[in-house]
Every structure is written in C-alpha cells, then in structure tokens.
Computed example of a mutant assay.
Amino acid sequence: MKLKKKLSMGLAPAALGLSLLIGGTYAYFTDTADANGTFAAGTFDLAVNPETIIEVDNMKPGDWMNRVFYLENNGSLDIAEVILESSYEVIDANGDNTEDFGKHIRVNFLENVDKTGREYYNDIIFSTTLYDLKDMAPDAVEKKIDEYFGEGSGLPAGTDDLMWVQFEFVDNNEDQSQFQGDSLIINWKFVAKQGEGEHID
C-alpha cells in the first residue's frame, strides 16, 4: 500500500507538468499582416513626323533641297539618345555607273533647332555625304554646342524636337552623266535609347 501511494504521488506532479507543457503550446497570441506592391514598366514610343523626309524628282548636279521634320517622344519615359542609322539603295537606270551615287549626295546639315542657341547652330551632321554617313552614328537629340540657350540633350516624354536638313546633289565640275535617270532610296532609322537607371521615389 505504501508503494502504491508513493508511485501515485510521484506520477501526479509528472502528469501535471505534462498537462502544463501540452497546454502551454497553445497559450500565446498571434496576428498576421499582408504586404503587396506593383511594378509597371514605362513605354518607349519614338515617331518621325512626317515619315517621308524627302521625295524629289528631276534633280541635277548643283541642286539642293531643304526639309523639316519632327522627332516626337510619345511614350512615358524620357529618351536619352536618338541614334541615326543611315543607309541607302541606288537604282542604276542604265547599268553604267562606275561610282556610287551616294558619294554625290551630301547632307549639308542636319540641325536640331530645339537645341540651337542664339549664336550657334546645333548641327548633328555637317557637310557629310550619304556614303560617309553610313559609317557614322550621330545622336540626333544631343546638344553639341556649349551655349546656355536652347534645350539640353535628350528628348523628354511628351515633347518633340524640330529638325532642319539640307541635301545637295553635289556638282563636282566633272562629267556626272552616268547618274542620269538614276534613283537613290534613303533610309534613316532613328533608334531611341534610355538613360541610366535612377532612384524613384
């Protein structure tokens, strides 16, 4: 009897401790909170207006042509650079060309009027043949002059830049009869590029 009493008395605290231990696993407060966010990318939308910059017939050596067009940023992101990639195709009407017609068509200037100052023109291109321009990559929205007046480089969202250009069929004082009836199809591709990433509030 004494042994049973001792065993029962010894088991009672153990059972109580076990019940407290088990009960204790559920004896605390809990709470939760959710967080979320949204990432939305901006848009690039560069346009040339009008898309056909020049279309002219019956040229002869010595003729020059002035044209106007706009580079438009219709996207939501600022454009840091607009690189001009120039190419062309010559259609030799008589199959007698010994020279590249593109060497005789010169871009006397391509001026970004919005970046021009009071005293200096902001010429993106100055006196370059279409042949040589193929190997160049000028930035059409770069402010190249060191003058306070006029806009800075780049093309902010929702703005446009006015461009003036002059082409010339150069008269080289030599016989250029091989180009009679020929055509030159020019392709100017303007490639918009973003600036570096930056901190956004």
Rank of each mutant, 00 (worst) to 15 (best):
R106L: 11
I83Q: 01
D78S: 04
I105G: 03
L84N: 05
Y131H: 09
T128S: 08
E168W: 01
T116Q: 11
D171H: 09
I91E: 14
I185A: 04
E168R: 10
M59V: 14
D92Y: 04
D92F: 04
I79S: 00
F169W: 08
Y148I: 13
M59E: 09
K5V: 12
Y70F: 12
G24Q: 06
P13W: 11
S177M: 02
Y120S: 10
I91S: 12
E55R: 08
A192E: 05
G150E: 09
V82Y: 07
S127Y: 06
I54Y: 05
G197N: 12
E147D: 10
I105C: 06
H104M: 10
N172P: 00
I145Q: 00
T32F: 12
F44M: 15
N172G: 00
E85T: 10
Y121E: 09
E111P: 01
G37H: 09
D132Q: 11
L20P: 01
A140M: 07
D135N: 13
G37W: 03
Q178F: 04
I79A: 01
E174W: 00
F167T: 01
G102T: 01
E85R: 12
P13A: 03
I54A: 14
E151Y: 07
N112C: 08
A41M: 12
K189F: 09
L11D: 06
N112A: 09
T116W: 00
F169K: 01
E196T: 09
T159N: 07
E81H: 13
D114W: 02
N122Q: 06
L11N: 02
V90S: 07
